[in-house]
Amino acid sequence: MPKDAKQRVVRLTSQQITERLVDAAMTLLAEEGPSEIKARSVAEVAQVSTMSVYYHLGGLPELLQAVIDKGFEDLNRAFHAVTRTEDPAADLFGIAVACRQLAQSNPHLYDLMFGLSTRGGYRQLRRSRTTHSGRSEAFKAAYSYLVGECARFVDSGRVRSDQDPEAIATQLWSCVHGFVTLELGDHFAQFQDPVRDVLQPMMVNLLVGMGDAADQARTSVAITPCAR
């Protein structure tokens, strides 16, 4: 190679290579599924050497953990992108829909994030690399935002004031996660519009159970801008 050509070679930083590997793994997940997440296949898509997976990340389990963290970072951004209104219940439903949209955009990534994927080797790694609570920092950021929005809902006076916002967040997350998981498994094929026919009524029932008025809860869910 001529000397001037060598000088034009762009050397990637470790962070750039890691980002390439994570993006490549997410692309493979979306297009091929978890069985294609191998060091060589990911490196080929990222256009780096196979050894880069081990040198810059430590190995395939660490790569999977980085993919999981990126997924929760994307989820956190999706939560923040939901337009805040004067109706905290409508905003909570907007967050629920945002979670569903992320899952629809990359079902295999969602499975991996929540431990449903057939490639479950990352689970031990998550326990060793996360906090004592067992949650990664990326997960905690998204979850904390949800708890904050639940606190705003309690402060609105629409539900009983003695309720713990974190308990509400856990209930909401559980309901939405169950809905998303079943929908991804094609268990709502009998419904023309699962959001309208399943998710919205379920959200209303949850809000009413917390003390919200049924008519007000239905109105909040119906006016959510991103309900489709």
Rank of each mutant, 00 (worst) to 15 (best):
F191Y: 15
P107W: 06
A169N: 06
S128L: 12
T181A: 10
T219H: 09
D69A: 10
Q16W: 00
D186Y: 10
A24W: 05
L29D: 07
W173K: 13
E31V: 08
R126S: 15
S161K: 13
A222W: 00
F188W: 04
G121C: 09
F114V: 13
T13A: 02
R135L: 11
E31Y: 05
D164M: 09
T219A: 11
R152W: 08
D111W: 05
H187S: 11
L102H: 10
V159F: 00
F179Q: 01
E86S: 08
R135K: 15
T83Y: 10
L21Q: 01
P107Y: 07
V22K: 03
Q65D: 12
V154I: 07
V154T: 05
A222Q: 09
A142V: 02
I17Q: 14
V180E: 07
P88M: 03
N205Q: 09
P61E: 06
G134I: 01
S161M: 08
R119K: 12
G148H: 04
R135P: 01
T50K: 09
V48L: 06
A214P: 00
R40I: 09
D111M: 10
P225V: 00
I95L: 15
A142C: 01
R158F: 06
F153K: 00
G58N: 08
C99L: 15
H80S: 13
Q7I: 11
M1A: 13
R126W: 06
E166G: 03
A138I: 04
L112W: 04
T170F: 14
T27L: 15
L207Q: 07
S220K: 12
